[in-house]
Simulated scan of single mutants.
Amino acid sequence: MIVETQFTLIPSLTLDVGETLKDVTVAYQTYGTLNADRMNAILIEHAFTGDAHAAGIDHEGKPGWWANMIGPGKAFDTDRYFVICSNVLGGCRGTTGPSSINPATGQPYGLKFPGITISDMVRLQKALIDALGIPKLLAVAGGSMGGMQVLEWAVAYPEAVEACLPIATTARHSAQQIAFNETGRQAIMADPDFHAGDYYYKTPPARGLSVARMVGHITYMSDESMREKFGRRLRDKKSFGYDFEVDFEVESYLRYRGSQFVGRFDANSYLYITKAMDYFDLSAGFPSLAASLERARSRFLVISFTSDWLYPSYQSQEMVNALRGRNHDVTYCELSSNYGHDAFLVDIGEQTEIVRGFLARCVREFRPLEVLR
C-alpha cells in the first residue's frame, strides 16, 4: 500500500529565540486507524536526517526508514495503533525550514531562518497533535535526535503522553558529540558553493555536504561492523596505488553515502538541526537532570546498545538514574549489537519484543486525562 504525505498549516509558532513564524507547514504521514476514543495514537520521532516517511512504501517504491518496526504485527503494530510521524521544524522534507520561502522576501530563508531548538520542534508537533484532535498520546518514541524529542515531550507536555521510549539517545550532547557536528558544519561552510547559505537556484555546496555526511556516517557504525562489512578490501585493485581515487571498499561506500545524501537533504537544514541538537540540554535551568524530570508523568522505556559509541550506554544510564531518583516508572534495556548507533534502525529482533510488550502494558494501564486532573 502506497503511503501519502499529508500537510497541515499551523497559523503561527513562537520560537525559543523570541521570533514568531507564520503559516508553518508540517509534513506528516499516518499508519493504522485512530480508534473511537482517540487513545491509540503513537508519535514517532525521526533522527537527524530522517523525515516523515517512517513506514510503508512511498510513490518511488522506497520503504520508510523504520519500516521494519512499524506495520501490521510489528513492534508498533498498525493493526492496533494509529502511528504518526512528522518531519521536524527546520527540515527539508515538507516541513518549514531554511529552504522554504520567506514570505517577507519571496526567496528561500537560507541563513535568515531563525534559530531553532528541540523544544521548538516539539512545540510544532504538539500543535499538529492538537490539530488532529488527539487529547493524549499513548506513546512517543524515537532514536538518536528522535529520543531527544521524546524527552522534551515528557517534560514540556507531561499530561499529553502516556509513555516515552527514548532509544539510543542522550539528555545532552557531550563535547565529542558537538565536535563531530561542528566538523560537518565546517565542511559545508568551507565549500566555495555555500555562498553564506544563499545557494538556492545555484550550484549547491554538494562537496561540503557530502563530506559532512561521510563524517556522520562513520559515527553511526561500529569498528566491528565496519570490519565485517569492509575489512581492508581493495576495490578493483590488486595492490595499493597513490592516485587518491577510490582504493578501499570503505572509501567507495562513504563516497556513495555522501553523494546519495546530497540529493535528498539541504545543507542549511544540516546546519540548523545539528545546532539544535548541540544546544539541547534537558537539565538546563535546573539544578540537576533528575530535577528537570520532576514534571514528567509518563512511564519510560529506555533502550541503548552495547556498540553505540556515538550515544554510548552511559548516557542512557544517566537518564535512567535520574528517573529512578524521582521514583518514575522506568524500564531500561541495554541490547547487545555489533551495528553501533545504527542498531536501533537495523537490529530490531530483541527491540521489537521489548517494545511490543511495553506498549501492551501501556494499553492495559492507560490513564486518561480526566484521571490525571
Rank of each mutant, 00 (worst) to 15 (best):
Y109V: 07
A104S: 12
L124W: 04
I116M: 10
A139K: 03
W65S: 06
A168W: 02
N40P: 00
W66V: 04
Y81N: 08
A156Q: 11
F48W: 10
G147F: 01
I84C: 03
S86W: 06
I129R: 00
A131W: 06
A168Q: 03
A139H: 06
N87Y: 03
T169M: 00
A163F: 10
E45T: 12
L132E: 08
L111Y: 14
A168F: 02
H59F: 14
A47Y: 06
P135H: 13
L89D: 05
V155I: 11
V150C: 12
L43F: 15
D120L: 08
R93W: 07
E162H: 09
D58K: 08
G73T: 13
A104L: 15
V140R: 00
A139V: 07
E60Q: 14
L165E: 08
T95C: 13
S144P: 04
T169A: 05
K136Q: 14
Y157L: 09
P108V: 12
T95R: 08
G115N: 07
P158N: 08
V150L: 05
L128A: 07
L138M: 12
I57H: 06
A141P: 02
I70M: 08
A160M: 09
I118T: 01
A54G: 15
G71Q: 08
R80I: 15
I118S: 00
I57M: 07
M148W: 01
Y157T: 01
A171C: 11
K112Y: 09
G143H: 02
W153A: 00
I42P: 01
G71P: 05
M121W: 07
P63F: 12
F48G: 00
A104M: 12
I70P: 01
D77G: 10
T49I: 14
L89S: 03
F113P: 04
R93C: 05
L132S: 06
S100T: 12
P98Q: 05
E45V: 09
V161T: 10
H46P: 05
H59M: 13
I44C: 10
T78G: 07
G61W: 14
M39F: 14
G110A: 12
S86C: 12
Y109L: 05
M39H: 15
C85E: 08
G133E: 02
R123K: 11
K62W: 14
S99Y: 13
V161L: 14
E159S: 08
D120A: 10
Y157W: 10
Q149W: 09
V88I: 14
L124H: 01
C85L: 13
D77K: 08
V83A: 07
L111R: 12
G56N: 15
I129G: 02
D79S: 15
M121C: 13
N87T: 11
I116F: 04
T105I: 13
V88S: 02
I167C: 04
G91L: 08
V155A: 12
S144Q: 07
P108K: 06
Y81W: 13
M145N: 05
I42L: 09
S100W: 04
I57C: 02
H173P: 00
A141Q: 05
F76C: 07
I44E: 05
N68D: 10
R172P: 03
C164H: 00
L132N: 06
K126W: 13
A47N: 06
G94Q: 11
G143M: 09
A55H: 04
Y157D: 03
S86K: 12
P98I: 04
H46T: 12
D120M: 05
